[in-house]
Design a protein around this nucleic acid. Structure first.
Lengths: 109, 109
DNA sequence: TGGCTTCATGGCCATATTGCCAAATAGGCA
DNA sequence: TGCCTATTTGGCAATATGGCCATGAAGCCA
């Protein structure tokens, strides 16, 4: 793997890593529907606000989210809706995995 | 976030996590072109074979790869080509990020 | 059987990630 | 100015991840 390829794969990995967390995936899903402030997301997820703030920072750092300060609140929104396309593929993989499980559990049926 | 949503997000995160590594992304890319045995991938990546084997196991564990043993070799292939659709979105995000960088570096220009 | 090749696994250490609390910062308002 | 609210940041402990080496397991062949 040459250096340029390595660099490109690292850049891709950074974005995927930012997505690869249950809480962050949930927030991306919600922000696809409408923008939300940190307090709202904190309430929806049910975690410490500092935790949510850090998760949002990660998504913003890789360019997936945008934020806008309005008064004392900060509203986040989905900056790259194309990531939503991932989810249908993920669901398909999950579905296939379920089927495979069945075959593994009942091989001779 | 209710329990069912939590579980679904965790399942999605597991798959994305398996993808979110430079070496694993590279191998997915290569396996999209043609199946490869472990030795070939080891050579292409330039890492220890045990490391490559573990990376492949992770991708297989989440259902993205299939393997087939032929003689003493094990050939891996991409089981879910839909993940390739991710990459164009990732490239777009990377491209956008580059542009933003320029604006950030030269805000008044 | 013995030896060789290919691959997987276990162990270990270094590093990264997560999530909480506490403290700092920023904005609005009396 | 001083206080209150919303958010971010620093610090820390627990846990997970990554990569190498050494070892184990499986298949082929003489």
């Amino acid at each position: 793997m040459d250096a340029a390829t390595q660099a490109r794969m690292e850049a891709r990995a950074r974005i995927l890593k930012a997505l690869a967390h249950p809480t962050r995936l949930f927030m991306v899903d919600e922000l696809a529907k409408q923008e939300r402030c940190v307090a709202e997301l904190t309430e929806m997820v049910g975690a410490d606000m500092s935790t949510i703030s850090k998760h949002l920072s990660q998504l913003k750092a890789v360019g997936l989210l945008e934020d806008e300060k309005r008064g004392t609140q900060v509203f986040y929104r989905l900056a790259r809706p194309c990531v939503l396309n991932f989810f249908s593929c993920l669901e398909a993989v999950m579905q296939e995995n379920l089927q495979q499980q069945i075959f593994l559990v009942r091989p001779g049926a």
